[in-house]
Design a protein around this nucleic acid. Structure first.
Lengths: 346, 346
DNA sequence: TTGTAAGCGTTATCAA
DNA sequence: TTGATAACGCTTACAA
């Protein structure tokens, strides 16, 4: 007690001395407790407690020949106000961060955050300083090569085809689109409008649409390809405002929440009530949507859970060299208040 | 080249061998380059490059007797949907994170994130594993004692009085409230409504109000103390809706953006136009406010910059044992679109 | 089951 | 200005 309180360094040797064992035994008590006699183990633990002993992680790491660090590598698009839309996703980032930390909590690994920009331009750090890499939102094939060629175990959350499935964890966009459609159909909507970005530009958009159109055939939905985001949503909805006012279409699905928000406010401005006049469902479940006058119906991509699983997978790759976990992550429906039963058909 | 590409370990000794110097000289080249002969320095650097040598940070840290880690300790209120309001501040968290990382980039320190809950309940980690602690949004005096008693250098971003000024960095709430008021006065508003939480409950609220009422005397503003947040804003504004409709009061200031958003939507619902019928200004500059139909006028607390400065201060404390930097951080005005010139007096 | 001792890759002191 | 060399605190063969 006194020792530690006085700030005098207490290491394995001091504990060993007090417990009357060798320092190797102390080490074993902490790393392979099953390999040491129960009585001795307790004596050591007692001595350690008395001395307020705390293992030095860095020394352990050095002795083990590892780095003790997992890298969360992001594309640093977050927080760039100008590249606008991705900025708002930083909200989800904290969730993801916490989930990954949760997985790493019991391990020797510490989570370190960095981004591609620092890696490439400044080379202020080296991938070799890490035992594993979790890529967040990295979709450029060249960027990925950088990671793959480092030889460090990695996992990856997107859709580049060249990546082995083992290292990949992705949100099931098809299923998400399907959920949107199924919800609208269940609430009695016959004819719907689907608002998205240019489908040939982004695979995720295409997949979400495929899931949606699996339920709503071409005759039963109107597809609008345009810009995404708040402004895009406003623009797109204007082109079909007459078809909403005429009640020809009774529900709208958007490819993401930001676009849905543009639609939401544009309709509001024109005195069209949601969901009384038209139903609306988004995609992503940005926390923002919970602050709207009517809580937006949307799809929760559960990004925190997705990256939690990716951290688990990474650990498995580091330890076993491989990983058997699922790579496919299913989103879920948030019912919200912006979709209501279609009264036109009652 | 070959060596490193083949994954064979290359350390100081290999570099020393190739450069024809001792390993101590190699070490000096990297740590105290001024202490080594220029020619030799270049030879060493060349050899290091050729071998693709990378210093082992953990070994350095161990030898130096430091931990190589700075802790960002938060109160883990973020991400708790139920404790609602703080949840939305996670948006700002990413900003702060990036800024701190930016400061630490040139140092041996890595940023590690953790929270009080893990520290107290699980004791899954030990404050002694860190060289410095940045406390984020920790306002409980007992929690702070934990940090202070660890003896580790720390900085701290709030208003507990017992903390020495050196270790404290705070946002100037008085000035922020003053900015709100000055902006409203400049745009010609004579009588205003100030909506806040219970003033005796939270010092920050009190300070903001003091700044505001420094410009608007009691006769010129109506103070509403109530619940904060979206619901609170809705409630509070309802109690004075007649005074807004009658144009007796032409502008509203809210203690924070979440409250302002409640006010915003409640007014919208009642057909009161912002800023045509009444002006509105919030506080915090949550990114959210940029997505509203009219971009909310608000006060930017610049939390990223604040924590950047706090990281700089912490480094100064670690290195010099003390710190001379300013502890007071001034927010700035975001003009937005929800405050307009008061036409009543034109 | 336990102890001895050789690393792990640095830093830094002390002589030269 | 340089080179030996002793830490740094731990892990882990290997031997006992």
């Amino acid at each position: 007690m006194v020792n530690s309180d006085m700030g005098i360094k207490v290491d394995r040797n001091k504990v060993a001395l007090l417990a009357g064992v060798s320092s190797a035994t102390v080490s074993r008590v902490f790393n392979h407790p099953e390999k040491v006699n129960k009585d001795k183990r307790e004596t050591v633990l007692k001595a350690a407690k008395e001395l307020n002993y705390k293992p030095n992680i860095n020394a352990a790491i050095l002795a083990r020949g590892i780095n003790g660090k997992i890298l969360l590598l992001d594309n640093n698009k977050l927080l760039k106000y100008d590249s606008s839309n991705s900025y708002y996703y930083s909200w989800l980032y904290v969730d993801l961060l916490n989930q990954i930390r949760d997985v790493l909590k019991g391990t020797v690994y510490e989570l370190v955050i960095s981004n591609l920009e620092d890696l490439k331009i400044q080379d202020s750090f080296d991938l070799r300083d890490f035992d594993g890499i979790i890529c967040f939102d990295i979709d450029d094939i060249d960027d990925l090569s950088l990671v793959r060629e480092s030889g460090i175990p990695y996992v990856f959350g997107h859709h580049v085809r060249e990546i082995p499935l083992t290292n990949k964890l992705f949100t099931d966009n098809y299923y998400g689109g399907f959920l949107q459609a199924r919800f609208l159909r269940e609430t009695g909507h016959i004819k719907t409008i689907y608002i998205t970005g240019m489908l040939n530009k982004l695979n995720a958009h295409k997949e979400r649409y495929n899931g949606f159109s699996d339920i709503y055939s071409c005759k039963n939905h109107l597809l609008i390809e345009g810009r995404v985001g708040k402004d895009g949503g406003e623009e797109s909805i204007r082109t079909v405002i007459d078809k909403i006012e005429s009640k020809e279409y009774t529900a709208i699905a958007a490819v993401n929440d930001l676009t849905a928000i543009g639609i939401y406010f544009e309709l509001m401005k024109r005195g069209i009530s949601i969901p009384e006049d038209v139903s609306l469902i988004g995609y992503d479940n940005l926390p923002f949507t919970n602050l709207l006058p009517k809580r937006l119906s949307t799809i929760d991509i559960k990004i925190g859970q997705l990256y939690k699983q990716s951290a688990i997978n990474l650990l498995s790759i580091i330890r076993n060299g491989t990983n058997e976990m699922p790579g496919n992550f299913k989103p879920s429906l948030i019912r919200g208040q912006t979709v209501s039963r279609n009264k036109e058909i009652l």
